[in-house]
Nucleic acid binder design. Sequence first.
DNA 1: CCCGGCGTTAAGACAGGGTTAAACCGCTCA
DNA 2: TGAGCGGTTTAACCCTGTCTTAACGCCGGG
Lengths: 226, 226
Amino acid sequence: MIRVLLVEDDRDLAAGVLDYLELENMVTDHAANGIAGLNLIRSQRYDVIVLDLNLPKLDGLKVCEHARGEGHDTPILMLTARDTLEDKVVGFAQGADDYLVKPFAIEELVMRIRALANRRSGQVTRRAVGDLELDIRNREVTRLGQAVRVSPTTFRLFERLSRACPEAVSREDLMFAIWGEDQPDSNSLKVHVHHLRRQLAEAGSSVKVETVTGLGFRLNPDGEAE
Amino acid sequence: MIRVLLVEDDRDLAAGVLDYLELENMVTDHAANGIAGLNLIRSQRYDVIVLDLNLPKLDGLKVCEHARGEGHDTPILMLTARDTLEDKVVGFAQGADDYLVKPFAIEELVMRIRALANRRSGQVTRRAVGDLELDIRNREVTRLGQAVRVSPTTFRLFERLSRACPEAVSREDLMFAIWGEDQPDSNSLKVHVHHLRRQLAEAGSSVKVETVTGLGFRLNPDGEAE
DNA sequence: CCCGGCGTTAAGACAGGGTTAAACCGCTCA
DNA sequence: TGAGCGGTTTAACCCTGTCTTAACGCCGGG
């Protein structure tokens, strides 16, 4: 569940966005001016804050600045009608994590909110994929409460794939996720993918590792044909 | 992982930037003149292109113009010593996505590169043509939810055609889109067009590949006579 | 009637991916 | 200290689907 705070003074726009976000199973709060927004930021816990730049009482940049200054590290997405580069730069400098220029497609906003929430959820230690659950902190994978044995390398591979799921991840990205800078020069990745597949199959999981020819691999949570 | 192409003739500046970008885990290529840059754009895949305006052989604007003309939609960040409004306007008109005036802080460049790369990755990677949908990220084509099997090369061909649809694309452009620099010397393109046609027909799609004699090919979404 | 452009087909070369086993490495524990 | 062990890397091999090549068929225009 994603908690979103929207700070936006245009009531109509705000109402539309809130409706849509709630349809997407997000929990939303709303503030119509900067001061109210800042108070909510201080008192509640959010996964993402969507902040209009032009706000009554205290503008978006100031809100951003204050929030960061007070130690809040919740991802902030700036919303603005202005499109000048200066604003962008100032926005980023003030600690915004993303930017969206009005008018925007609501789907894009949702997508970016999800992206920001996920980025942060690197700190969240559990994630579900199909019938599997992976505990990132403890490097464990479980299915129906049963532990699935995976080696460290295989775990890193699975973690990266699950993060992108159901999108595909390129070989290069996978290599980087597993080994970082200096990577083995042979077909180690193939072997680990093979191990992962075998381990998932042995655990009886519905999750399948699919190959996208010429690109890389993808996790299919239900193992259904595409 | 972000792939960056830097086209810049000042060797010192380029070296500094490249070092820094690599420290930031970006994968970089470098070209010291416009022609070389354009060739790399044609043959490689980048997430962001950083383009100096003043370049030997072919200036930045021309490179930008050619790249866009050939259907590349990679975000381009223009780098320039000039700061006149006209330059910005011309740059944006030519298809640049962002602008940075020399001298600049390297951190700012990094910030903007990230912003451009994210904007793109947040961007929808699906495209519709007639009754087909193609998912560029996952390299797959679907019709009514059913996957249409296409080989990597056929996909590249289809992707390029769909990008121009309903305009025609010349043989040359198609060859570049599929093979980049070194292209096969025989009638491979004909064969792949044939494959594509057969696969579309087998999938029952209304989309037809039409021949423009002496020029190249064109996608007709509805298969109606012209 | 020949030529050039395009479409079609089949065969062989090739590459990408899958699989396996053995070597290797660091660790623990007798 | 050296045997055992789990994990990782390497290298070789196979298989399958894809790409390229080359040859041929078709058609319209000069």
